[in-house]
Amino acid sequence: MTDLPHSKPSSIAHGEKEHEMVGGFTRRKVLAGAAAATAAMSVGAVDGSARAQTRQDMVAFVLLSSALTGIAEVKLAPGFDLAKSEPGSDPVDVKQEYFNWVNKRRPAALKRLLQIAADSQKLSAADRAQAIIDKVQATPDTKYLARGIVLMWYLGAWYDPDNLRALAELQNPPANAFKFEVISPKAYTQGWALRVAQAHPMGFSEMQFGYWSRPPSARIDFIGN
C-alpha cells in the first residue's frame, strides 16, 4: 500500500475526455466496468523487450525529459551538449538509471518517445519542447509513459503508465492504481518537485544553516528555466 493516512483517492470527474479514443476503446466503453478496463489497459502493457542503448538514445532521452519536465537539459544532465551529441558527464548520472528503468519495462513506447525527441532535433530550441509535448500525447501509450517519465524526474518514483491511465480515465479507479515505488535512494535525493519550488527534497538539503530565513534564489537558478 502506498497511501498515507490522510490520502483518499478522489473520484475522477469525467466528461471532458469523453470523446477520446483509448487504445481502440471509446472512453464510454472503458467505463463500462473495471474488468473490461483492466483488459483494455493490458493492451498497452505488451511492449516488447529492452534493447541496447546508443549515445544518440541518451541525447534524445535528455531532450525528451527536458521538454516534458520543463527543466533545462543541463540541470537534468550536467555537461549535456546537443551540438557535440554529449549526453552529460555528471558522476551522479541518474538519467542512466531512469533510462534503464523505462527501457526494461516499456521498450516499445520508449522507442517511440525517443524517435519523437530525435525528430525534434532539427527544430529550433524555442519550438522543440512544444513539438515534443504535442506529439507524445497522440497515443495513450506514449502519453502515459511520458507522464510516468515526468513523475520519475520530479519524485524519483515510478508510477506505472497503466495505473496513470486508470486514474485519469476511470470514474472509480481501483485503490491500488495509486501505488507507486521509489526507484532508489539516489533517485529520491535527485527529485525535482521541490527544487521547482525553490527548495530541496525533504531530507536532502544541499544548503547552509539559516538559509530558510532569507528568500530563495530565483527559480531559474534551481531549474535553469
Binding site: 483518499k8 483517492p9 478522489s10 513523475l151 520530479y154 508510477y159
Partner: peptide, 17 residues
C-alpha cells in the same frame, strides 16, 4: 497525504486529490 507527490501527480496526470 504526502506532498510533494500528491500535488505533482495531480498536475501531471489531471487529478485533484
Amino acid at each position: 497525504g504526502g506532498d510533494p507527490n500528491v500535488t505533482t501527480l495531480d498536475f501531471v496526470n489531471g487529478l485533484n486529490r
